[in-house]
Design a protein around this nucleic acid. Structure first.
Length: 582
RNA sequence: GGUCACGUAGUUCAGUUGGUUAGAAUGCCGGCCUGUCACGCCGGAGGUCGCGAGUUCGAGUCUCGUCGUGACCGCCA
């Protein structure tokens, strides 16, 4: 037996016990006559004492231990003469009688404190050391707890966790696939799943009417702080249900997670916004509704006064920033520069200050009379002391810029509190999206999403106007999940694929097995997938999902620790029938 | 594919208008210290200023290229 206790559990009432502990040397404090060692494991830190007068040889041995040595000690628990209130074990220490080095350690390249002195790069290379730090440890524990709660919740609702394959067939629709060459079948490739979409639908057809899976998914696209090439989804599918049933089950799940994990209780139903309404009020389909500052369209109000920027714009809108009329010229100039960055893409910004004394001051005083400027304020619900920020231009781009500006101002005003959670459902997404590059309609969600019944007639006449039975779960401006009610009718599915420009052969080649399965008695079904990494990061208050994944990839999709991807041997290539040109 | 930022000691960073021997903190090594807990004090070692070219009497500093890292845009059905 290597240990009788962990480094986090001994208390004052254990004083007098003979114990054996094992762990890492976190830090040592050599006072000459005595040496203190902090022994650490994932449960906590316990202080060890070595005394020159008690056992000089042992004490000298202890002094030689470097940081991160793995040691085993036997000794007696005793009350400290000077206690440390900062540690749960701070009332006691171990008077060591026996010391074994279980594993020596090189000097770590960075410190393993709460706040490490190491930068991203070196910590990623030595990820196994970084994971010893408390914050990352806490994050992985949180991830585990959330996973368990999700499993318990769905299990209690009768869901079955069923695994689907990781080596599947490539489907070019959607994100790029990661592909795996086949050794047994020359020139052929598997793909890693972007999601288990088709398989979960087949499970519905097979009669497993409530399925879920915590499942790795893969997308070969560029990374972000919230996007990894391999990530985990809470993937679900249900039969004999409609949209309302899905929303109910997962609203319940999110409420339970928020209550039990971060003690944030929500009694009322999550707000629901149609996609149209979300775009209109927030300029985005994933609004952060922790704060107001909604968008107001002013296009008709501002035109025809000789201000060319507005006269030529397809869309003009504003947000009203409460209490910000005191913004200085310098601050407004900086904000203007901010919206003009290519990432935001606004041409410029117009402001109107509604001063406390009733006067109005704007950057377009030359073109608009004060009463006109006041009418804008009224349209936006501005009161004295508020600041109106206007952007104009092509509609879609301007809505995007407006939405980003809204988030930025919310951030500056401290309205985006990480301890507050504001979930909502966004519903009635457009079924299709025009793809400029491909010059055709593509599915906004995926090709198996059902159109709303009342829009069926528009399918051929005005495809862009057709709404889908699709929904997203958004929390604090983060897209946490999305799903849809699927098509369970063979004829409708064929119509959809036709509309998306699939030839009969292509459709047959890519998802023939699903199309065939639909003919064998398919129940109405639908589901949802939640981004598990994002959900955990959100609950943990983190900005990057990398901090919630044990071994993540870097910006360039590289594993900096193992140095993957990498070249493979000629022998491997030969077995896979792969030869490189040039 | 693109935009921006960064790259100097093991680590995190500072380094003025181009100018003598490139600094600090921390870590590391050695010494002193019996109640520390970010222990303290004294001493020491540690640098191809990412790499390559250019401008210059002279480059950590300026220019170009290149590599790496990060954030974002495109992309992510």
């Amino acid at each position: 037996m290597y240990r009788t206790h962990t480094c986090g559990e001994l208390r004052l009432e254990d004083a007098g016990k003979e114990v054996t502990l094992a762990g890492w040397v976190h830090r040592s404090r050599d006072l000459g006559g005595m040496t203190f060692l902090d022994l650490r494991d994932r449960y906590g830190i316990t202080q060890l004492v070595f005394d020159m007068q008690q056992d000089e040889g042992l004490c000298r041995e202890a002094r030689k231990l470097g940081r991160e040595y793995v040691v085993q000690v036997k000794g007696e628990v005793r009350e400290r003469s000077s206690k440390n209130k900062k540690l749960p074990t701070g009332d006691i220490e171990i008077e060591v009688k026996d010391l074994h080095i279980l594993g020596a350690s090189e000097v770590p390249p960075f410190t393993l404190e709460e706040e490490s002195d190491g930068g991203e790069e070196i910590r990623m290379k030595y990820r196994y050391l970084d994971l010893r730090r408390v914050p990352l440890k806490e994050n992985l524990i949180l991830r585990h707890r959330v996973a368990q709660k999700i499993r318990n919740y769905l299990d209690a609702q009768g869901f079955l966790e069923i695994e689907t394959p990781a080596l599947i067939k490539s489907t070019p629709e959607g994100a790029r696939d990661f592909v795996v060459p086949s050794r047994l079948h020359e020139r052929q490739f598997y793909a890693l799943p972007q999601s288990p979409q088709i398989f979960k639908q087949l499970l519905m057809i097979a009669g497993y009417d409530k399925y879920f899976q915590l499942v790795k998914c893969f997308r070969d696209e560029d990374l972000r702080a919230d996007r990894q090439p391999e990530f985990t989804q809470v993937d679900c599918e249900m039969s004999f249900i409609d949209q309302e049933d899905v929303l109910q089950v997962f609203e319940g799940l999110i409420k339970e997670l928020l209550a039990s994990v971060v003690n944030f209780k929500i009694e009322e139903d999550f707000p629901r916004l149609s996609w149209d309404e979300a775009m209109q009020r927030y300029g985005t389909d994933k609004p952060d509704i922790r704060f107001g500052m909604e968008l107001h369209e002013l296009t008709d109000l501002v035109k025809g006064k000789g201000f060319r920027v507005f006269d030529e714009a397809a869309w003009v809108g504003a947000i009203c920033v409460p209490g910000a009329a005191g913004y200085s010229r310098k601050q407004l100039d900086q904000l203007t520069e901010w919206v003009k960055r290519p990432q935001i893409g606004a041409g410029g910004m117009v402001y109107v200050k509604y001063n406390g004394d009733g006067t109005v001051k704007s950057s377009v005083d030359k073109f608009f009379a004060p009463e006109e400027l006041r009418s804008w304020g009224e349209a936006c619900g501005a009161s004295a002391g508020d600041l109106l920020l206007l952007l104009s231009g092509e509609k879609e781009r301007t809505l995007f810029a407006m939405s980003e500006l809204r988030l930025e101002m919310g951030e500056r005003l401290g309205l985006r509190d990480k301890r507050v959670f504001a979930p909502l459902w966004v519903t009635d997404f457009p079924l299709l999206e025009w793809d400029e590059e491909e010059n055709r309609f593509v599915a906004k969600h995926h090709p198996f999403t059902s159109p709303r019944e009342e829009d069926l007639a528009l399918l051929e006449k005005d495809p862009a106007a057709v709404r889908a039975n699709a929904y997203d779960l958004v929390i604090n401006g983060v897209e946490i999940g999305g799903g849809s009610i699927r098509i369970h009718d063979t004829a409708l599915q064929a119509r959809m694929l036709d509309l998306l420009g699939f030839s009969r052969e292509d459709a047959e080649q890519q998802f023939g097995f699903l199309l065939e399965a639909l003919r064998y008695g398919t129940p109405p079904h639908g589901g949802i997938a939640l981004g598990f990494d994002r959900l955990v990061a959100l609950l943990g208050g983190g900005d990057s999902i990398r901090d919630y994944i044990a071994f993540p990839k870097n910006n360039a999709a590289r594993d900096m620790m193992a140095d993957a991807p990498n070249y493979i041997s000629e022998k491997q290539l030969k077995e896979l029938h792969i030869r490189f040109r040039g």
